[in-house]
């Protein structure tokens, strides 16, 4: 047997990809404006890599939030080609690079700079639904046990990373800043359907208010936007059903 030289594996080729980024520098700009940047990228690169390349090699004034870069911290939610996505979970190969890729800040929260928004109204709604275990009676001397079936009831909601992709994809939230928004309702759902929790009534009353679950118009933008695959609209519907059928 003679050794046959294997065909050389082709090295991946970087292609030039153009990004249209909606920029806003409050010190200089009166209004946000679009700017285009072209950077060489591999198909397996993330949009986050592109933004880091732009910031590091082309224009250092570009601002965006990022922390873990692995879809867990929820810092880099932004609108990529018109849809809310995490920049660290969006790969170049999944986008149409024949046209510029648009990147802009998430909608419905006050724009502070470039891709950074003020998240405070979002977290205010989150805190308002009391996203923590509420118990009554005696403190047990051991852990609070729960069956696998009971645990499964609220499993979807536990995946939330509070990135705000869902809340800022909601047309109701864009026009009505008072609406709790999908993320806060998911957080409430996670405790309402937890068998160890006894604060369900209080949370249901909060969400039965005018700006609670009844503002949901079931557009499913939130379900589509969630980078964790949470069925957000279903979680909101479960709260609606709990309110209708509880008595």
């Amino acid at each position: 047997m003679t050794a046959v030289a294997e065909a050389p594996i082709a090295a991946p080729v970087a292609t030039d990809v153009t990004f249209r980024v909606r920029r806003f520098l409050p010190e200089v700009d009166a209004e946000p404006h679009w700017e285009e940047y072209t950077v060489p990228l591999f198909p397996t690169d993330r949009v986050l890599t592109a933004l880091e390349k732009i910031k590091g090699e082309v224009d250092g004034t570009l601002s965006f939030r990022r922390s873990c870069g692995h879809g867990i911290c929820g810092s880099d939610a932004m609108r990529i080609n018109g849809r809310n996505r995490l920049a660290c979970k969006t790969l170049v190969k999944d986008l149409d690079i024949s046209k510029p890729i648009t990147v802009e800040a998430i909608k419905g929260l006050p724009l502070e700079k470039d891709l950074i928004v003020d998240m405070e109204p979002f977290f205010e709604a989150y805190r308002a639904v009391m996203p923590f275990l509420i118990t009554d009676g005696h403190e047990p001397s051991r852990e609070r046990l729960q069956s696998a079936e009971d645990r499964a009831k609220f499993d979807d909601g536990t995946k939330c990373i509070l990135c705000a992709c869902c809340t800022t994809s909601c047309p109701v939230y864009w026009t009505d800043g008072q609406y709790f928004g999908p993320a806060a309702i998911v957080a409430a759902n996670r405790f309402i359907f937890d068998s160890r929790d006894s604060g369900a009534e209080q949370r249901l009353e909060i969400l039965n208010e005018k700006e609670g679950v009844w503002r949901c118009r079931t557009t499913f933008n939130c379900t589509d936007a969630c980078p964790r695959g949470i069925e957000v609209t279903k979680a909101i519907q479960e709260v609606k059903r709990a309110l209708i059928f509880r008595r």
Partner: peptide, 13 residues
């Protein structure tokens, strides 16, 4: 380019 944001690209819902 122009300063307006893009239209949100929602689905059937």
């Amino acid at each position: 380019l122009t300063s307006v944001g893009t239209l949100y690209r929602g689905g059937e819902g």
